[in-house]
Simulated scan of single mutants.
Amino acid sequence: MFYAILAYHVEEAITALTPEEDAELMTDLLQIHERLYREGALGPAARLGATQDACTLRGPGAGMVIDGPFAETKEQLLGLYVVDCATRDAAIAIARDFRRVNPTAVYEIRPISLYLPGVPLSVTQS
């Protein structure tokens, strides 16, 4: 069985790290990643982009795109998709496709950056 481990943190605390502190944190995390990878327990790992770069698709019909990840507190993150798109609009179009078949869901669209060296994932350059 696969599990998603979603790392929640105070965003300002992470963005306040110096490049050296961030590199030290990543070195520590990569030691765990490498162990899990050797054990065959780790798939792709990604750091979500900044919340200010996120948008949410909600509302009736085709929905309305709202800046930011503003899910209601009664809503929980139940799954995620990683899609390879050249633009934010292309990602929104895919979210609208999901919404067409699941109209009660709310979809947050956020850029991600890979930070696990050696694990291949095709990425479209924008």
Rank of each mutant, 00 (worst) to 15 (best):
P103K: 01
P103T: 03
I109W: 03
V119M: 10
V119G: 01
L116N: 13
T104D: 14
I112C: 13
I94W: 02
L116C: 08
F98A: 04
T124Q: 05
A90V: 00
D89A: 15
R96C: 03
R99A: 12
V101W: 06
T104E: 13
D97Q: 15
R110I: 14
V101G: 09
P111L: 04
Q125L: 11
A93N: 09
P117S: 05
R88Q: 10
V101A: 12
N102I: 07
I112L: 15
V101N: 11
E108D: 11
A95H: 06
A90D: 15
A105P: 01
A90F: 02
A91N: 01
L116Y: 09
D97P: 00
R88I: 05
P103N: 03
Y115C: 12
Q125M: 11
V123F: 04
I92Y: 02
Y107V: 09
N102T: 10
S113N: 10
G118P: 06
A93F: 01
I94R: 03
A105H: 13
I109E: 04
A95T: 04
P120S: 06
R110W: 08
P111S: 10
V119E: 09
P111F: 01
V101F: 13
Q125A: 13
S122Q: 13
G118E: 08
R100P: 01
R88E: 11
F98T: 00
N102R: 14
I94A: 00
R88P: 02
Y115G: 08
Y115Q: 10
D97Y: 02
Y115H: 14
P120L: 05
R110K: 11
P120Y: 10
R88Y: 03
R100D: 07
S122R: 12
V123D: 03
Y115M: 10
R100I: 01
P111K: 06
L116A: 14
L121A: 11
N102M: 10
P111Y: 03
P103E: 02
Q125K: 09
I109K: 03
L116S: 13
L116R: 09
A95Y: 04
Y115K: 06
I94N: 00
P103Q: 01
I94Y: 15
L121Q: 11
T124F: 00
G118V: 04
R96I: 05
I92L: 14
R88L: 12
S113Y: 09
R100F: 09
R96D: 04
V119D: 04
V123Y: 04
P117H: 05
P103A: 02
I92G: 00
